[in-house]
Design a protein around this nucleic acid. Structure first.
Lengths: 121, 121
DNA sequence: CTAACGTACAACCATATGGTTGTAGATGAG
DNA sequence: CTCATCTACAACCATATGGTTGTACGTTAG
């Protein structure tokens, strides 16, 4: 496992920024959903959206910078494939946040066990 | 449940955009993590970061627009609390995306089981 | 009442973002 | 070889973003 691979597994704040930012656009989420189903070329993707090829190309670049997709040449086409790991990283971070929240609820539970307490949820 | 509440449960694309955009900044993720642990005032939050009060205020506004936090007055302070639902919505969306991915893997399994198969769309 | 605190918000600035068009370089089809 | 296709990338533009400072307002402490 090379250093570059490590970066995907142990994401820096900047990497997390990139992943969520990549996900914060409906077109990019759609491109991701599409390529999760089937690999496709950038131009094939471009046909699906009411914008220029260059715009779609930029969206793919953003997804690639976030590690959500990878590109590889096949003939004259550039094939976009997904890398599920970046997606899982994001999901795990949300889980972590939710677990922080659950911990607080547990603490509230402790408080409830005592004489006085405010109702959670 | 009012219409405004419904909007949080059935998020529009714009709402999803806002949630992921809100999460795409390390300061905002930290504010969220902090308020998941303990409610705190905007000024208390502001003390934690190397930026102006106004900047932190803006970050809180972004989180609130995404529905990740809510604000309510307590005396002269504005208390920031979390709403776990928006976070769960984001997590669910990631799960959906991953499930699309798993479906493809299943289909690949089907294809392997059969002699020949072109997978349309 | 007055002063300090917490907040709200406007104005401003530099940079990023998301789109466009245009040009040029690979590559495969015929 | 020639041409159409796919890609890459630069230049440009309008708007959004993330920060600043400054001002004004509500509220609490003394």
């Amino acid at each position: 496992m090379v250093v570059d691979e490590l970066r995907k597994v142990l994401p820096s704040q900047e990497q997390v920024d990139r992943v969520f930012h990549a996900l914060a656009d409906a077109t990019r989420r759609d491109i991701l959903a599409r390529t999760l189903r089937t690999e496709s070329s950038v131009s094939a993707l471009a046909h699906q959206y009411p914008m220029s090829f260059a715009a779609v190309q930029k969206h793919v670049t953003v997804l690639a910078a976030a590690g959500l997709v990878t590109k590889h040449r096949r003939g004259r086409e550039q094939i976009v494939s997904t890398d599920i790991r970046a997606l899982r990283t994001a999901a795990q971070l949300l889980d972590q946040l939710e677990s922080i929240w659950r911990t607080r609820i547990d603490r509230l539970g402790d408080i409830l066990a005592e004489p006085e307490g405010g109702a959670p949820q």
